[in-house]
Amino acid sequence: MTENPTGGPGETGSQWYDGEAGPLVRPYAMTGGRTQPCPTGVRFDLIALVTLDPTGPEPGDTALGPEHRTLIELCRTETQSVAELAADADLPVGVVRVLIGDLLELGCVTISRPVPPAHLPDERILREVIEGLRAL
């Protein structure tokens, strides 16, 4: 008996293919079974900002998979958070972290942290500066 990879409900192989969604690729296949972003263990959270590095190598490298290229295209227009990239690429956050780690190692992207609210100037100080400028 041969397997039918495009089988309908109840047929052999149907759990691997959905006629409407297309073939299913498991997350571990996209990351090569890796769960950590980089061998160095660099971890970045959902609000870490990802920016395409203009001095990095050309993203047309054949070593990059289609998911890597999707993330690069999403970062091409503006800096985005890891959460935004995961949502826009329709990929699990864990997969996006690993893929961004690959791009970081290749020098295609840079990761930065948003300024924590505790390090932002106090609103009172900003208002005093505005009042001082108006007084001039």
Results as ranks from 00 to 15, higher is better:
L24G: 09
M1L: 07
L104S: 07
G132P: 04
V109N: 03
V25P: 04
P66Y: 08
G7F: 00
L136H: 15
D102L: 05
E123G: 09
R97V: 07
L24C: 10
P37V: 01
V25N: 12
P9T: 07
L133H: 11
A83T: 04
G65K: 02
I72W: 01
G22C: 04
R34C: 08
D45F: 09
R34P: 07
L126P: 05
E3G: 02
E78G: 03
L85H: 02
Q36W: 02
V93A: 15
Y17L: 04
E58G: 08
V42K: 13
G33C: 11
V82C: 11
A48F: 03
A48L: 04
L24E: 08
P59W: 00
G107F: 03
P66H: 13
F44N: 10
C38M: 10
R113E: 15
G22A: 05
G94P: 05
E84K: 06
T12D: 12
V50L: 02
L24V: 15
I130R: 14
T6H: 13
L71H: 04
V95S: 11
V95H: 08
S14M: 02
C38S: 13
E73N: 11
R134L: 13
G7V: 00
G56W: 00
R124A: 13
I100W: 01
G8N: 06
T6D: 08
R69K: 14
V93M: 14
Y17R: 02
L126A: 11
T55L: 07
P92R: 13
T35C: 08
E67R: 02
S112L: 03
